[in-house]
């Protein structure tokens, strides 16, 4: 499988990564090399083989109860906000084209 420049651009877009022209050129070449290596998987016979789903036996069940965090933890969470107003987190507008817009 081989990737062209447009494919890499689409992937970067999907992954929300703005890549420079130079980065796109490098990524195209390097991803091709890696894909050439991993392509050996396609020649492994996997008819009737189930995909591995659980890496280890575990018991993931627990009570579905709410537990809150203490005041210290809460303050650390708030202090990590990139932009904070009081206890509120400021973010860019989520709806870039509000109703009635374009």
């Amino acid at each position: 499988m081989s990737l062209n420049r447009e494919d890499v651009k689409t992937l970067a877009n999907l992954a929300r990564l703005k890549l420079s022209d130079e980065e796109l050129t490098i990524a195209e070449k390097e991803l091709d090399n890696i894909l050439a290596y991993v392509d050996r998987l396609s020649s492994v016979k996997t008819t009737d083989v189930e995909p591995l789903t659980v890496p280890a036996k575990s018991d993931g069940w627990r009570e579905d109860v709410v537990f809150s965090c203490d005041e210290v933890t809460r303050e650390f969470i708030l202090s990590n906000f990139p932009v904070r107003r009081g206890d509120l987190l400021k973010t860019p507008g989520v709806f870039e084209h509000p109703k009635g817009g374009r």
Partner: peptide, 27 residues
């Protein structure tokens, strides 16, 4: 960035079976 791109590719529509699913079977 390289690994995010590779992962995005292997999970994207049309390639999921060939890469992710096949790798899980080989696993």
């Amino acid at each position: 960035k390289r690994r995010i791109l590779l992962g995005t590719y292997a999970l994207s529509q049309g390639y999921y079976d060939a890469y992710y699913l096949q790798a899980k079977k080989v696993q």
